[in-house]
Design a protein around this nucleic acid. Structure first.
Lengths: 220, 220
DNA sequence: CGGCCAGGTTAACGCTGTTAATATAACACT
DNA sequence: AGTGTTATATTAACAGCGTTAACCTGGCCG
């Protein structure tokens, strides 16, 4: 029985149990299913016991979200690690993994990106940490390999991020399996992503028109 | 027999007052600021009086969201009505209006697209109604005018929708004024949208490569 | 031993959505 | 006029929520 030397270094059993219970409740029924009393009941303690480890519910949620974000980036990293650096496959796999994780962890993802990020500190520590860097590096590699054209990497990252994130949030608020096509085609999310990839690569400009022509004179 | 829960043909004074109070509270402090007692207090009645007009809070929120969606589509329609049909300006103005409305009505927009859409009926009546058709018609016009290349309109609509929606949701969860550029550039949302428009038109493929070459053989 | 303190308890406050029972006023019908 | 019905509002209450306060309890340290 070695007495625990430093408390904060390795978390106690109780606190991890609390985190697990909170994570499960969150994944099962969303934010409103995560109640202090509910978490406490799962752990087998009183509700107020949680306040020994977390200042309030928001802090608990923040912790869970933070861990979820780490799992998210880990998932993304694992999805592209075996693919050749700078390849289009790698870039595409990253987007697909983004979508897959979001759809398979709906409530989780929802809460991760519903963290209103009131304090500017929140946004610093959460989404930018590993996720953005991973995204950016993949884009930079693809640029150097000639897979995509050269441009401001941050701009391109944000552009691609916007796309996958938009697709995901639309699918999350509409329907699980992408019935957003209203002509009865009902493409699945991966199918949609594949179709979109072509637009991303080649753009929407009409076929025979060179870049100079459509510049900004499209109006009559 | 059954007390009429649905608002009558001409809404009474009280019900519109309730809707207004609910809308204001929602716009001010988000969903959690919208409480039955709070709404009732603003109207000047008892909390339970609301239940004469709305089955429960969810129904009230749904009503407010529905009205907000109508305002949203009206806003979009007004933003493009004066611009030439089929022009790139029109398409761009639509996207810009989408972003502008979302950023100027943050809580509103958030709740509109946070309507988990549990019942399939919800999604039918809400987002598809006028908004999608407006979006689609604008795209079809642009296609016929040769502003953008020809493709499945629904696919292109969803593509562009994904684009603006993703940008908006990212900006909403990150920061008001788009500090998502982490190199200190801090482009504003309209600036970002303008920059992205070029990507949307011309794509990300490297400059000199024709469509056939990069098809799907980008791997090593 | 005394003291401290982390970790747990119960009780309680004020808030929430919601239900039940009740009151009141206006209208229709005989 | 009386009577019933309906719409509209009320108050009281319940269960659940996050959170605070006061209290207990066991183990560690000087």
């Amino acid at each position: 029985m070695t007495p625990k030397i430093v408390a904060p270094a390795q978390p106690s059993d109780t606190v991890t149990a609390i985190e697990e219970a909170a994570r499960d409740l969150l994944a099962e029924g969303g934010l409103e299913a995560l109640s202090m009393r509910g978490v406490a009941a799962r752990v087998g303690v009183s509700a107020t016991a949680i306040y020994n480890y977390f200042e309030n519910k928001q802090a608990l949620v923040k912790r869970v979200v933070s861990q979820g974000f780490e799992r998210f980036t880990g998932y993304l990293r694992g999805a592209i690690v075996d693919l050749p650096v700078g390849s289009a496959e790698r870039l595409k796999a990253l987007g697909e993994a983004y979508i897959r994780f979001a759809l398979e962890n709906r409530e989780y993802f929802r809460v991760i990106f519903a963290s209103h990020a009131e304090t500017p500190q929140d946004i610093e520590e959460l989404p930018e940490g590993g996720g953005y860097e991973l995204f950016r590096q993949t884009v930079v590699d693809a640029m150097e390999a000639g897979t995509i054209r050269e441009a401001d990497p941050d701009l391109v990252v944000l552009y691609l991020w916007t796309h996958v994130h938009g697709l995901v949030t639309l699918l999350l608020t509409c329907e699980p399996d992408a019935r957003c096509e209203h002509t009865g085609k009902r493409l699945s999310a991966p199918e949609l992503f594949t179709r979109f990839s072509e637009f991303v690569l080649y753009g929407l400009r009409p076929e025979g028109v060179s870049r100079a022509e459509t510049g900004s004179v499209a109006a009559s």
